[in-house]
């Protein structure tokens, strides 16, 4: 496990620093968690205006009370098969640090589950899958009541690295 940590080169001061409240949501068969402090609000699915010349996982933009914010489909982002949207489909609006200011971005998920208090000993560092599997946006794995939740780093999921990536597209 220590080796894994070393491989990741994570200097978060150990996984203990990750404990806190997480909003969990479902995506396919997995449960994911995202730091509650990053979450601005959760809204139901609304009509999304497609924006041309963007990667497929960028579904477009929505009107969030007069603000125009981008929405990305987390399924597509994680290269999972896309599903029909249901009435449980939600947009989680998160606020991440952009290049100059904080930006709000919506994430489409299958359904929102609960807010979970995760304590330090429940968290393990992300596993090393070997090869080039990208785990950079995973903070750690939380084992709560026998289930595993994947804790995501919102800034990395929709961080500036992403931006650079599709500036090149």
């Amino acid at each position: 496990m220590e080796a894994a940590e070393a491989v990741r080169g994570e200097s978060v001061g150990g996984v203990q620093a990750l404990e806190g409240k997480y909003l969990t949501f479902a995506l396919g068969k997995e449960e994911y968690g995202i730091g509650i402090l990053k979450v601005r609000e959760i809204i139901g699915l609304m009509e999304i205006t497609a924006v041309p010349h963007t990667p497929a996982y960028i579904k477009g933009v929505i009107n969030l009370r007069g603000r125009v914010i981008p929405v990305l489909d987390l399924r597509l982002k994680f290269e999972m098969a896309s599903e029909e949207y249901t009435e449980r489909t939600c947009i989680i609006v998160v606020e991440v640090q952009g290049e100059s200011a904080a930006v709000q971005v919506g994430m489409l998920v299958d359904s929102v589950s609960e807010v979970l208090n995760v304590v330090g000993q429940e968290i393990e560092p992300p596993p090393a899958f070997g090869g080039s599997t990208e785990t950079a946006f995973i903070l750690g794995m939380a084992k709560v009541k026998g289930e595993v939740k994947i804790l995501l780093d919102a800034d990395r999921v929709i961080g500036s690295g992403e931006l650079a990536q599709f500036e090149a597209v």
């Binding site: 933009v61 603000r67 100059s100 200011a101 500036e167």
Partner: peptide, 10 residues
């Protein structure tokens, strides 16, 4: 309205 920093270069 700006599309936000995220999509500004579209």
């Amino acid at each position: 309205k700006s599309l936000g920093g995220y999509l500004k270069d579209t």
